[in-house]
Amino acid sequence: MADGAGQMATDAMVAKSSASAPHILAMARKAIRDPLVAFMAAGVALFGGYSIIERAQKPPVVFTPQVEQAMVGEYETLVGRPATAADKARIKRDYLAEELLFREAIDRNMHLTDGETRKRLVDKVRYLIAGAPPEPSEEQLVNHYADNLAQYRAEPRTSFTQVYLAQKPADAALLLAQLNAGETIAGDDFWLGRAFPRYGDSMVRGIFGQPFVATLKAAPEGRWFGPVRSPRGWHFVRKSESIASAMIPFPAIRDQVRQDYMIAHSNAAIDKALSGLKEKYDVEE
């Protein structure tokens, strides 16, 4: 009797389930046709897709066993003893803090807006692209020197003496006559003094400005002239020597030629890579 009652209960449940199946299917079809349900389903799908994309773009910060092993090993080598549990906890904490701060810096676009950060990244990529150039042979250096002779000319130089005045003198003609008569004029203190032996044009330009250089080059030697105005004040000047531009012999400038050659070698590799990078990134010229 018990077995018969159990079988009857089972048959009743199956019959009830079979009877309710069409009802459930009808409810499902109605729900699918409901605009609100469809909207919610689309929202769930979009959110799920966005989460997947976000996770791909921003991989999680994970302190992997490989990272831990490397950092603990480095720490133990540095301190000369096994790392304790506290040491390992601190290593993990410091790693995660540095990684989070680095990612925050990237998220704030500091690599795009901070000039020093940009420069370091650019220099790093330059090195990764170009690598360390091979040591040039003597023949290559001589050829580089011969192909770039204009870079290895000594600039014109001038030797001169000055008397500096902070303010324009009211009796300029009298002072000039006294100087040319061999008299001494005290003048004001100048931070570089009075004598400028064999100064290159670029040095004179940096101190006194280009108009001073032009006046100095056009002036005769052995006579005082002026006063010449500069951004620093007023100057009576006597030119004593003019040295024309001349080639610098290769042995005297070999180290500079070597440096220039290696820079040119690296720049050629960078230029070659840039054409591919322009295709990779959207460049508007």
Score class of each variant (00 low, 15 high):
1 M>S: 11
6 G>D: 09
8 M>F: 11
10 T>C: 04
11 D>L: 15
13 M>V: 14
14 V>P: 01
16 K>V: 05
17 S>F: 00
18 S>D: 15
19 A>S: 15
23 H>E: 14
25 L>N: 08
29 R>I: 00
32 I>M: 15
39 F>M: 13
40 M>S: 14
46 L>K: 12
50 Y>T: 05
51 S>Y: 10
53 I>G: 02
59 P>Y: 15
60 P>L: 03
62 V>E: 15
65 P>R: 00
66 Q>E: 15
69 Q>H: 11
77 T>K: 14
78 L>F: 06
100 L>A: 11
107 D>C: 06
113 T>G: 04
117 T>R: 08
131 G>Q: 08
131 G>C: 08
135 E>F: 00
141 L>T: 03
142 V>G: 02
143 N>Y: 01
143 N>S: 12
143 N>R: 13
144 H>W: 04
147 D>M: 07
150 A>V: 12
152 Y>F: 14
155 E>P: 07
160 F>L: 03
165 L>W: 02
172 A>Q: 09
177 A>E: 12
177 A>D: 02
181 A>W: 14
182 G>T: 05
192 L>W: 04
194 R>Q: 13
201 D>F: 04
208 F>I: 01
209 G>Y: 01
211 P>T: 02
214 A>I: 04
214 A>M: 07
214 A>N: 11
216 L>G: 00
219 A>H: 00
225 F>K: 05
233 G>W: 04
240 S>Y: 14
243 I>V: 13
243 I>Y: 14
246 A>P: 00
248 I>Q: 04
251 P>H: 08
255 D>K: 10
261 Y>E: 00
261 Y>G: 00
269 A>M: 09
274 L>H: 11
282 D>W: 14
285 E>S: 08
